[in-house]
Nucleic acid binder design. Structure first.
Length: 545
RNA sequence: UGCCGCAUAGCUCAGUCGGUAGAGCAGCUGACUCUUAAUCAGCGGGUCGUAGGUUCGAGUCCUACUGCGGCAGCCA
């Protein structure tokens, strides 16, 4: 949008009738007529001395919920005819019922709404005319006494009013009765593109989006209470590492340097550990240049923490405590989900974070669910032989599994995990012991060649965290990077790049360290029961239309 | 990226066999001094996503494009 009034002008007599469009094409929904009418109402309000945009401040006695809670204390139930204390409130007009010389309107502060009762005799001539110029969508400040209507609704008997904003557009507010919503804004594209309307009009959407804020706050409080330092590491990097993903590129003009947006927090956080800061965490945005789906967004918020002198079991305990703390602090509990395949006789239940998580071995679970044994998975060849002899059908989706494209045994094992095991992991479960090839930053398991000291946590069939005992042997780490570089040379553009700076830090000495990463967006989805990542992102990236 | 579906008033949706655009809410005018999906009477509102094509005639049929959604792929 450009600047104000010159964008719209009335054509003079003799020209084409009505209004002339004099602005660039825009996708914004706008009705010429409504906008014009409301600007005229605004002008009249100003003539009456009720300029909405001139008011800077409106002190409220309490929130809407607070007024309703403290109704009796604030004199709402005083005897008929007695002088009641004056309360003050402000909110957006979300409904109006006009009856000649009296009216009711609900004012919402976003969370809750309070009804105002407006009567000409009580307001006076000018304020009553001003009230008549208000629309659904305007913000309004009121003062008056609390009382109960004949139907018992706690309301404000308005004595003075002050328009605080004028809505120049029609808000797609639905009507509601008995908690059931009529109409309203339901088109998902409109909701994502014009999120402010979604926040105003859809309580469930508002709840999930604001729950995110409470969850992030609880996560911070948890780690701060445990003595972790929150740090911030670079988003612009020469080589983005710490995960397997394609990158976004950009350019830094001052150094004439191509840089990449980070795909993880891992390597820099471990360099902080190398600096003898034994407990660190970061909550930050990472960027992965990959497809969009109901669980993937190109930018998302990652939590990672690292704790020196802690092993896998310590990290598991932290994950358990963290989820229990966040669930308790926010009051959010994940609803039962149909994303999992319930075992025979097993009911779909809401996960309970107050109990310890199940702990299972990756290979044992694969054997239990698919019959493919650890012996079968001794080598890529034997694994393919074992798979080749049977019909490989995903029990959850009924789809056949493609086998043979995996370049190494680790990739195949993770595929089997994904297909046969994950859908069954309804209750919070740690799956322990991931293949070496797909875990280039995790310590080798000395008792099990080819596997690492790594686990992932699952809830409702979905991965919620990824953790391992961090490699602190620089020689081992270099060999792992070199293996990744060979993968990359073979065409895997997501294989991990060499990072000499990181190796230099490891060579300086890193204590044994446990680390873990959690996708905050998916944690919010889990706790709010949302099935789409866009429902927990305020402004998901949309193609221009 | 592939396949499928959707796109009509500010919002939510109808639109028959291809015959020239409908409803509710919102908006405007009027009535109504305790309503709450307020009620009653009346009124205005549309480049039917975009561009082509077929046809005497296209919201409707065909093609392409754009956006959104679903599935697949991708995503440890």
């Amino acid at each position: 949008m450009g600047s104000g009034s010159c964008l719209w002008k009335r054509s003079s007599a003799g020209e084409s009738p009505g209004w002339t469009r004099d602005r660039p094409e825009s996708s914004l929904p706008m009705s010429d007529d409504v906008r014009t009418l409301r600007l005229e109402k605004l002008a009249r309000l100003r003539e009456l001395g009720f300029d909405p945009y001139a008011v800077e401040r409106w002190e409220r006695t309490d929130s809407a919920a607070g007024l309703l809670d403290r109704f009796e204390e604030l004199g709402g139930d005083a005897d008929e005819g007695t002088e009641r204390p004056t309360v003050s409130f402000a909110g957006r007009i979300v409904s109006m019922r006009l009856m000649g010389k009296a009216a009711f309107a609900h004012l919402s502060d976003g969370d809750e709404k309070v009804q105002g009762y407006f009567k000409k005799d009580d307001l006076g001539e000018e304020a009553w005319e001003a009230f008549g110029l208000l629309d659904i969508g305007d913000h309004l400040g009121v003062t008056g006494g609390l009382f109960r209507t004949k139907t018992g609704e706690k309301s404000i008997h308005v004595r003075t009013l002050a328009p605080l904003s004028k809505s120049l557009q029609v808000l797609p507010l639905g009507k509601e009765k008995d908690g059931h919503q009529w109409y309203g804004l339901t088109d998902v594209e409109e909701r994502y593109r014009h999120r402010h309307l979604d926040l105003v009009c859809n309580p469930e959407a508002r709840h999930a989006l604001l729950a995110r804020s409470r969850i992030v706050s609880a996560v911070r409080r948890y780690f701060e209470s445990k003595g972790f330092f929150e740090v911030e590491t670079p988003m612009l990097q020469l080589e983005a590492g710490g995960a397997a993903a394609r990158t976004f590129g950009t350019h830094f003009n001052a150094y004439d340097l191509d840089v990449k947006l980070r795909i993880s927090l891992e390597l820099y956080l471990k360099r902080v550990i190398c600096g003898d800061v034994p407990k660190v965490f970061e909550l930050g945005r990472v960027f992965r240049n990959e497809g969009v789906s109901n669980r993937h967004n190109p930018e998302f918020t990652l939590l990672e923490w690292y704790e020196a002198y802690a092993n896998l079991e310590d990290v598991m305990a932290t994950v358990e405590e963290l989820f229990a703390f966040v669930a308790r602090e926010t009051g959010l509990t994940p609803p039962p989900s149909d994303t999992t395949v319930a075992d025979a006789g097993e009911e779909r239940v809401a996960p309970d974070f107050s109990k310890p998580w199940h702990r299972v071995q990756l290979l044992e679970e694969i054997e239990r669910r698919s019959g493919i044994t650890a012996a079968d998975l001794a080598s890529l060849d034997s694994a393919k032989r074992a798979l080749g002899e049977r019909e490989i059908v995903n029990p959850a989706t009924g789809k056949r599994i493609q086998v043979g494209e995996e370049a190494h045994l680790g990739g195949l094992i993770e595929k089997l995990l994904e297909v046969f095991v994950e859908p069954h992991l309804q209750e919070p479960t740690f799956v322990v012991g991931y293949p070496l090839e797909t875990s280039p930053l995790a310590k080798k398991d000395p008792s099990r060649p080819g596997f690492t000291r790594r686990f992932e946590g699952y809830v409702l069939g979905r991965e919620v965290c990824n953790a391992f005992s961090e490699i602190n042997d620089p020689t081992d780490q270099r060999e792992r990077f070199e293996a990744q570089v060979r993968e990359r040379a073979r065409g895997d553009d997501e294989a991990h790049p060499m990072d000499e700076e990181f190796l230099y830090a490891l060579e300086g000495g890193m204590p044994p360290t446990g680390g873990c990463g959690i996708g905050i967006d998916r944690m919010v989805m889990l706790l709010t029961g949302m099935e789409h990542i866009r429902e927990v992102l305020l402004f998901p990236l949309m193609r221009p239309r």
